[in-house]
Amino acid sequence: MNNREVGSWGEAEVVDYLKKKGYLIVEKNYRTRYSEIDIIAKTGNTICFIEVKSRKTSKYGLPREAVNRKKQNQIIKGAMTYIKYRKLTTFSYRFDVVEVFLNDGRINHIENAFWV
């Protein structure tokens, strides 16, 4: 699998995982001029902006380590655009990172991984 296929497979796995946990998937691969948000989901009164990181191995570090401050700022800008465009001012918001480990199929959901 190339990197794009790994990413797509990981995102599909996370969508299934979130649905099983009762999340409503609102958007996938939402693009703005600032960034792409992998998954936007709703749970209760909270809109979750979710970055998915999939890895075949941990040879180069944990998947979550790839969500550095620059990437976080891009996601935050994209989320602010989404909130403004959709007029979603009555919700709570959260930024999550979900790690997918292809070698053992493990999924690690980190809620509130970063904030504004």
Rank of each mutant, 00 (worst) to 15 (best):
D38W: 02
E111F: 05
I50K: 07
I83H: 03
K56V: 10
R106F: 10
F95H: 07
N3H: 11
F91N: 09
G78M: 10
V100L: 10
L24I: 12
I47F: 15
N29A: 05
K70V: 12
N29Q: 14
K71D: 04
R86K: 15
L62D: 07
Y30A: 04
G105K: 11
N2T: 08
T32D: 02
D16N: 15
N29P: 02
V15A: 11
K19P: 06
V67W: 09
R106H: 13
G10N: 01
I39P: 02
G78V: 00
A113P: 02
A79L: 04
G10C: 05
K71Y: 12
I76A: 00
T43C: 01
N103P: 00
R86G: 01
L62C: 00
R106L: 11
N73C: 03
M80Y: 06
L18W: 09
S58K: 13
S92T: 11
A41T: 11
I37R: 04
E36W: 09
Y30R: 07
V116F: 10
V67S: 08
W115I: 03
R4T: 14
H109I: 03
D104R: 09
D104P: 04
N3K: 12
V52G: 02
K19Q: 14
E111P: 02
C48Q: 07
R31L: 04
N73V: 01
I39S: 02
G10F: 03
I75R: 02
E65F: 13
I47Q: 08
A79W: 00
E13L: 14
I47G: 05
V98D: 10
V52W: 00
Y34H: 14
V98C: 13
P63K: 08
G61D: 07
E36K: 11
I76H: 01
F114H: 00
R64F: 11
W9P: 00
P63R: 10
I47T: 06
S35F: 01
E65N: 15
R94L: 07
I76R: 10
E13F: 03
S35G: 04
V97F: 13
K84C: 02
G10L: 03
S35E: 00
T46F: 06
T43N: 12
E13I: 04
S92P: 00
K71I: 12
K84P: 02
Y17A: 10
Q74I: 03
T89S: 12
T57M: 11
I40V: 15
G78D: 07
Y17D: 14
L24S: 14
N108I: 15
A12M: 12
G78T: 08
R55D: 08
K84A: 08
L88M: 15
Q72P: 01
I50T: 10
I76E: 06
Q72V: 06
K53L: 09
V26N: 06
W115E: 14
T89R: 10
D16Q: 12
R55L: 10
V52A: 06
